[in-house]
């Protein structure tokens, strides 16, 4: 029983990271109906840039710089890869361009930071805290708090500020938003900036818990997609619940079955959800007007 509780606690931290990346998918999907297939690479770049910066400054000082970097990287992806494809209304186009940008980023990272995984110095004590017999790493707590904080911040921005409302309006009806004087192109660019920023943030949050390297993003990005589908691409609550489900299922599979298989449940859940409720557990199915 204690082992199970321990696994659940570790699963929660992992799940929140998935939720955070999945949240990034939702941001761009809402405004433009597109996804960045390089979301995992945005995370990886954030973590590696953070690693380089941490050599010169404290972790806390590095955080805002990484966020800025993430935003810029998102803008780059949108301008080079997504914008031209949106103009020609080509789904094939943006899928292919975001994938090719992803492999370019990965390759560049390999050449800059090398092929090997590197440990990321932890800003918090690495000794676990005992709590009712369950060991929790301080960094795991930071992951949960940090992920919730940034999601909450984005949500508050969307609800309270006029610019945030413009973002929501764009995701509701892009043409009508344009009629309100909202530059919807800018809103989409902005959503990519936000999306890559959250991914970069997720990168520096998870880096101290795992190893950092050019390949760290691929699997995380994929599982986060599963989470976004499981929770529903248009439900904020959905990604958190979806992330927690997947995180816990994975840590338990890793322990009770085999660590080799721990990446399998993500896909199985993804296929199951698509087969049973394609709009996701919390998603609203939208009726398209003909």
């Amino acid at each position: 029983m204690e082992i199970l509780a321990q696994l659940i606690v570790s699963g929660i931290a992992l799940g929140m990271i998935y939720a955070l990346i999945a949240f990034g998918y939702q941001l761009t999907f809402a405004t433009s109906g597109t996804l960045n297939f390089g979301q995992g690479e945005a995370l990886m770049l954030g973590a590696l840039v953070g690693l380089t910066l941490v050599g010169h400054m404290s972790y806390w000082l590095m955080l805002p710089l990484v966020l800025v970097f993430g935003a810029l990287q998102g803008i780059f992806v949108e301008r080079v890869g997504v914008l031209p494809a949106i103009k020609t209304k080509s789904e094939f186009g943006w899928i292919m361009t975001t994938i090719s940008l992803a492999i370019i980023f990965k390759n560049v990272a390999e050449n800059v930071w090398g092929h090997d995984d590197i440990t990321f110095p932890s800003p918090l004590p690495t000794a676990p805290i005992q709590f009712l017999g369950i060991r929790v790493l301080p960094m795991e707590i930071l992951v949960v708090v940090g992920a919730l904080a940034i999601m909450l911040a984005v949500e508050m921005f969307n609800r309270k500020s006029i610019y945030g409302k413009a973002v929501v309006a764009t995701s509701n009806d892009r043409d009508a938003a344009g009629l309100m004087g909202i530059n919807t192109g800018m809103v989409i660019t902005f959503s990519y900036a936000l999306s890559s920023m959250t991914a970069a943030f997720a990168g520096v949050l998870i880096a101290p818990l795992t190893l950092t390297g050019s390949t760290m993003g691929v699997v995380l990005g994929l599982k986060a997609f599963s989470v976004a589908i499981i929770g529903g691409l248009n439900s904020g609550m959905g990604v958190i619940v979806g992330g927690l489900i997947l995180g816990i299922v994975e840590t338990t599979t890793g322990y009770y079955v085999s660590t080799g298989y721990k990446d399998v449940p993500g896909l199985v859940l993804l296929l199951l959800v698509l087969a049973i409720k394609p709009s996701g557990l919390f998603g609203k199915s939208v009726i398209k007007k003909v």
Partner: peptide, 21 residues
């Protein structure tokens, strides 16, 4: 073409978006 998930007040405020920005 109203913004379905936003409140009535928010819809009206968005109408004034260029004035507010």
């Amino acid at each position: 073409r109203v913004f379905a998930t936003l409140s009535v007040t928010d819809n009206l405020l968005l109408g004034a978006f260029p004035r507010l920005t």
